[in-house]
Every structure is written in C-alpha cells, then in structure tokens.
C-alpha cells in the first residue's frame, strides 16, 4: 500500500506492506538510520521518534498507521547550519553518551520533555526517560546533559 507522511519537514511517500513497522520504513526505505532497534518487546526506546509531536516507539507503530502524520527523527534535529542543537551539544559536552546506540531515542525523548517542561527537575527528567534504556552511561550524565540543555546549573549534579 502507498503511504505519505512528513518526515523532518519534508513530504515523503513509499510503498509498504501492512506489517511494515514505522522504524523499518524510516531505516530501510528512507535510509534514515539514526533511529535504532534495541529490542523486540517495546521496552528500550532506541526507536523513539516524534509522531504528531508525541514521542513514540516507532517499533510498535505501523508505517501505515503513520500515513498522513508529521514525523520527526534525530536526523532533523541539528540546526539549519549543520551545527548541533542545544540538546545534542549538551549530550556531547556532558558525556551523555558512550556507544551512541540509545542516543537518538534519548535525544528525541529529551526534546519532547523540554518542549513541555522548560526547567524539569532531576526527578522529572528521570521519570520522562522511563521508556528509554541505556546500557552504557548509567543515566547520570544523560540527566546532567538534559539539565544543562534546559539552561540549569549542573554543578551540584557534577559533584554527586
């Protein structure tokens, strides 16, 4: 079946099977491979993208379900001039990633959080990242990165 959607502001379309998952459409058809697959039970959140402004797990949504939707992925997050956006830069500055596999999903989840909550507390950040698993960082520096991205002081977190 033919589907069309907006991905990172650009109209795209493709021919998919009913069973094609959104994550596979993004990775295999659109060749946007920043969105990752870390599990087959909808837990890890490495496939997190935004669909109509909500952060969702693209492994648990059919591409056909997103027909007509507005989708955003990690590839669309950098600034117009190609430099990292505030959140991406904060992950780099505060060592919020190691292997980088969860990072696209983490950044998308963090982006959605900061859209609704400009100055989240550490507890709010951790709560909002409940759906994103990281094997490398122990989360500490991810929380720090998001605090920093929101313009908050992270010196006390660094001292922990």
């Amino acid at each position: 079946m033919k589907i069309s959607m907006t991905v990172n502001g650009e109209a795209v379309s493709g021919e998919v099977e009913g069973r094609t998952l959104l994550v596979d459409f993004l990775r295999n058809d659109l060749k946007m491979t920043g969105t990752h697959i870390g599990c087959d039970t909808s837990q890890c959140g490495a496939c997190t993208v935004h669909v109509n402004g909500m952060s969702v797990k693209s492994c648990s949504i059919l591409a056909a379900e997103a027909d007509g939707a507005d989708v955003a992925t990690i590839e669309g997050q950098a600034n117009q001039d190609g430099s990292l956006n505030v959140i991406q830069q904060a992950f780099q500055d505060h060592h919020g990633l190691q292997c980088g596999f969860c990072t696209p999903g983490m950044v998308m989840a963090a982006t959605e959080l900061l859209k609704h909550n400009k100055k989240p507390t550490v507890a709010e950040i951790r709560h909002h990242l409940d759906g994103n698993i990281c094997r490398c960082t122990g989360y500490h520096n991810i929380v720090k990165s998001i605090m920093a991205a929101s313009g908050q002081d992270v010196s006390s977190i660094a001292a922990e």
Binding site: G45, S55, V56, K57, S60, A109, D130, G131
Partner: peptide, 9 residues
Amino acid sequence: IADPQVRYM
C-alpha cells in the same frame, strides 16, 4: 502503567 511513549499510544 508502562512508560511515557507507550502512554501516548
């Protein structure tokens, strides 16, 4: 129930 992403859907 679940996590933020799952709760959106």
